[in-house]
Simulated scan of single mutants.
Amino acid sequence: MAGVNWEKAYHDLEEHIEAIMRETSNLVNNASPKLKLNDVYITKTDSLDVIIDATGERMEYAIDLIDRKGKMETIKTGYQKSNTFSFDIPDGRYSITAYAKESAKDNSRVFEKISVNFKRVQSNE
């Protein structure tokens, strides 16, 4: 590459590198977290308790609970601000679809589908 003044190019880069690094740092540190469903925690005692762990801004959560034996209608909770759900349901096999979205964005939605075997535990057993 004839005709390139490498020394001048290097000095120009040196003059701008600090500003570039500062701008990059501001973009990274001030960026809103990416919407992500991290995990779904399930506790089975006298009820089925579900906690959705997600990352994002101003989150809302929803659950679809499907009876895999077809004895019970599907439960669709709709979106709510709380990430905790509790269901009083009969013994059986269920599929849970957990949803998380940012309330400021209408179409930003992530979900995870989990199959759950739920067996009611009697308190006197």
Results as ranks from 00 to 15, higher is better:
Gly92Glu: 10
Gln122Gly: 07
Glu112Lys: 14
Glu57Ala: 07
Lys69Trp: 06
Ser108Val: 00
Trp6Ala: 04
Glu18Met: 13
Ser108Asn: 11
Asp46Val: 10
Phe87Glu: 09
Asp88Cys: 03
Asn83Ala: 06
Ile75Glu: 05
Glu60Gln: 13
Asn107Glu: 08
Gly78Asp: 07
Tyr99Thr: 01
Asn124Lys: 14
Asn30Ser: 11
Ala62His: 01
Ile42Phe: 11
Gly3Pro: 01
Ser123Cys: 00
Phe87Ala: 08
Ala9Tyr: 05
Glu14His: 13
Glu15Arg: 15
Pro33Asp: 08
Phe118Tyr: 15
Asn124Leu: 11
Thr97Ala: 03
Leu65Glu: 06
Val4Trp: 02
Asn30Leu: 10
Ala31Leu: 06
Thr45Ser: 12
Thr24Trp: 09
Glu14Asn: 15
Val4Gln: 03
Leu37Asn: 05
Lys34Ile: 14
Thr24Asn: 13
Ser123Ile: 11
Val4Glu: 03
Met59Asp: 01
Thr74Leu: 04
Asp49Tyr: 11
Lys76Pro: 00
Arg58Pro: 00
Ser32Pro: 00
Gly70Met: 07
Lys105Asn: 07
His11Lys: 15
Leu13Gly: 08
Met21Lys: 15
Arg93Pro: 02
Ile17Asn: 14
Phe111Cys: 03
Ile96Arg: 02
Trp6Gln: 03
Met72Tyr: 03
Met59Ala: 04
Ala9Ile: 04
Asn5Tyr: 02
Phe118Ser: 04
Lys34Gln: 13
Tyr94Lys: 10
Glu73Thr: 09
Val116His: 07
Ile75Gly: 03
Ser47Met: 15
Phe85Ile: 07
Thr74Ser: 04
Ala31Cys: 06
Asp64Lys: 06
Lys119Ala: 04
Glu125Ala: 13
Gln122Arg: 12
Asn117Cys: 02
Lys81Trp: 08
Asn124Ser: 12
His11Thr: 08
Glu15Leu: 14
His11Phe: 12
Val110Arg: 01
Lys8Cys: 00
Lys105Arg: 06
Asp106Thr: 03
Gly70Asn: 07
Ala100Asp: 02
Ile114His: 10
Lys71Val: 00
Thr24Ile: 03
Ser32Leu: 13
Asn26Ser: 05
Asn38Cys: 04
Tyr79Gly: 02
Phe85Gly: 02
Pro33Gln: 06
Glu15Asn: 15
Tyr41Arg: 12
